[in-house]
Amino acid sequence: MFEYCADPQSIQGFQWLSCYLTNGKHLLFYQSFGVVLLLLAVTAPVALAFGFVGASAARSRFLPFSLFGKGYTSIVRGVPDIAFFLFFVIALDQVFEYLRHKAKCPDWELPIRQGNDFVVCDIAKLPLSNSPQWVHEVYGFTLAVLTFAIVFGAFAANVLYGAMRSVPRPQLETAEAYGFSSRQTFWRILVPQMWVYALPGLSNLWMILVKATPLLFLLGVEDIVYWARELGGTKNPRFSDYPHGDWRMYYFGALLVFYLLVTRVSEVVLDRLMSRLTLGQATAGGEAQRKALA
């Protein structure tokens, strides 16, 4: 990074630190913060969408839909996250490769399962083994988003299902009395009003999601906790220009600050969102807002 960094053994104090903190490994560490934030930004809406679909399916009058919605939420909520992540990522990857294999190599004769091995033809690999590393990383990231979305979507579905049932019945009855069809009642009365009931539960999920990102490493994405552990570990002078002892405490301390900041920002945003959603609602909060204005 800086010119004086060429020989780190000869420098000390602030200069040493400035070189140390800007070496290639640390730049990867800083990048991983971006990866984690990007993951959160992408996963949250996708998981919410999964949850919405799951909740709408669960309360459907058409039996297969409602079984699907209820099955999805109860199965996924019941399986431990870590088992789900370990199993799912390998299984999902194999499903994709199996489908591509069937489509692209119809005259392949060998079995796909050979003992422990999962073997598909070369051009069915996902990503191809000769594609550059970034393609593999993007693919891993996509799998991570999908896995997180499925897991957190199930919890969100349960929260939304509860929220949909919390909207006061008279509101829906009034809509029906005005001649709204059931679809119109759902989209114009139920959905706009349910968020205020869903938000406390969803905000909990958001906070859990923020803290669940270290599971990313199970999916082959190198996240901030992985790098903190790697960088903080003892560095031997034979293998590093920047030898140091066990510094994991400092790195994890930095992560603590980062997570607390994310929590604080989330709280502020969620509070604003809550007061926005409460506006004009038939809840205690909405009533209080109305009185304060009047």
Binding site: V46, A49, F50, V53, F96, N130, Y139, V145, A149
Partner: peptide, 22 residues
């Protein structure tokens, strides 16, 4: 939203295919 997921999956698939040449 489901479309979005399908698109991402499709993107991942085509990205793989584009590299199949070499």
């Amino acid at each position: 939203m489901k479309k979005l997921i399908l698109t991402t999956a499709a993107l991942a698939l085509t990205a793989g295919m584009a590299m199949a040449e070499s």
